[in-house]
């Protein structure tokens, strides 16, 4: 590991100022589970490391009536797994968190870090995009802005964060009635594995007619960013979805993705697995939508 200067700011403002001052030379340290292996392998060689874990305002889980669920960016995946609020209102987030890495890594790794690292395979991204999440960013001086998560990712390791900006919160809207969500992660092992293909689906069905009123289908690990597939969504919206529609949507997704060949899988295999996993994920989301409660906020 190369030497670097270490900073441990106690406030957000101090952290933003440091980031701005050392723009291009600094890395933010949160859970460290991506950063430290990068330093160890000398793939990342920052001159400055800014540890934001000493900032208390970034570690909380709140369920707010207007915003839905709000996660501070320092919330770890094991905190997501053990949160009663999440278990009751957003069980899908627990389900996804359990698919990430290992118990030890989940004790360290944070939701904000997973998003800011911007790996195309990041497990939290497809499901959060499918849930229509937004992220709150803060810049030096304290000005905040929010951005749909879908627009946050620019490329592998690249985000919409401006110099000096820090991701402070993730907002996840309330799940409406008759809405089902699913995240399927294809891997060759069951733990400590990076997704070959990750598919998140959200499906909402109308009352009585069971016609589909909303779909979001988001694929991870198959493009330079997590990818939403409007072509597949269009096939399903407005219909009482049958198995042929699901097949057609899955095929459209397979055609839309732009995966690479790497050590985990070939481009062709990924495309075919997108088809298979989209089908399964849509089926699971539809089945969950059918069994989801009728009451709640419209």
């Amino acid at each position: 590991m190369k030497d670097f200067e270490y900073h441990s700011p106690a406030t957000l403002e101090e952290a933003c100022q440091l980031l701005k001052k050392y723009d291009g030379q600094a890395k933010v340290l949160a859970g460290g589970t991506d950063l430290i292996p990068g330093l160890y392998r000398r793939e990342i060689v920052p001159e400055q490391v800014i540890n934001i874990k000493g900032i208390p305002s970034l570690n909380f889980i709140a369920n707010e009536e207007s915003k839905g669920l709000v996660l501070g960016s320092l919330v770890t995946f094991n905190e997501i797994i053990s949160s009663p609020i999440i278990e009751e209102h957003y069980p899908i987030l627990k389900e996804v968190a359990e698919k990430i890495a290992s118990h030890q890594v989940r004790n360290l790794a944070t939701i904000g870090g997973n998003l800011c690292n911007a790996a195309p395979s990041a497990d939290s991204a497809p499901i959060l995009i499918a849930l229509d999440s937004t992220v709150a960013l803060i810049e030096p001086g304290g000005k905040e802005r929010t951005l749909p998560l879908e627009k946050f990712f620019i490329g592998p390791g690249e985000t919409a964060l401006a110099p000096g900006e820090i991701l402070i919160q993730v907002h996840i809207p309330l799940l409406k009635p008759r809405t089902g969500v699913s995240y399927l992660k294809q891997t060759s092992r069951q733990a400590l594995e990076i997704a070959v293909v990750g598919v998140a689906a959200l499906v909402r069905l109308e009352k009585k007619t069971e016609k589909c009123s909303l779909v979001r289908l988001v694929i991870g690990a198959c493009a330079s960013t997590p990818l939403r597939i409007p072509a597949a969504e269009k096939i399903l919206v407005g219909k009482k979805i049958g198995s042929q529609d699901i097949e057609a949507a899955a095929k459209a997704a397979s055609e839309a993705v732009k995966p690479i060949t790497d050590v985990r899988a070939s481009k062709l295999y990924r495309k075919e697995m997108v088809r298979v996993q989209c089908k399964r994920s849509l089926e699971e989301a539809i089945s969950r939508a059918k069994s989801s409660p009728e009451t709640g906020m419209e």
Partner: peptide, 23 residues
């Protein structure tokens, strides 16, 4: 040294962590 083998696991404030992933 990169959080994959678990051999360096210790308890930090009661939580099991890979001590190679903590400065």
């Amino acid at each position: 040294g990169t959080g994959e083998c678990g051999a360096c696991t210790v308890l930090m404030n009661g939580n099991a962590v890979n001590s190679c992933l903590v400065l």
